[in-house]
Amino acid sequence: MDEVSGFSLVIYGTAVVLAGWTSWWAKIKALTIPSKPIAYQSLMAAGIVLIVWGMIRGAGPLGGMIGFVGLVAGGMYLWTSTMRELPKQTLAVRVGEPVLDFDASDSDGAAFSISSLSGKPFLLKFYRGHW
């Protein structure tokens, strides 16, 4: 490792971070995200360590820019991975209880009442948004 330049360490570290992000994105698309991404967090941490090590050794201006990108990408993953958990909140209805009636606008802007579905089973799905 004494013969490995600071620039090379930055490149290795950034490559590790980008490879981790590529793999993670594939898991998002395939709906196979692990509930505990410890391996990915470790991978990103390892990449960050390599980048910092390389910068300490001296990676030059280009290495510095590349390393900055790697640090931001790796740091973002570690930060967002700690914010995946949703708060534990008690749903206002339980199995066996009546659904709560409400009014909302549909995609045409028309008023819609959940009670209009009376007599038919349905699945009500709350989701975060269109993105």
Partner: peptide, 17 residues
């Protein structure tokens, strides 16, 4: 919102969450 699916039967009763 917390992503949630609520299954309601024809009588308006929640059957699965």
């Amino acid at each position: 919102v917390i992503p949630t699916a609520i299954l309601v039967d024809a009588e308006g009763i929640v059957r699965w969450i």
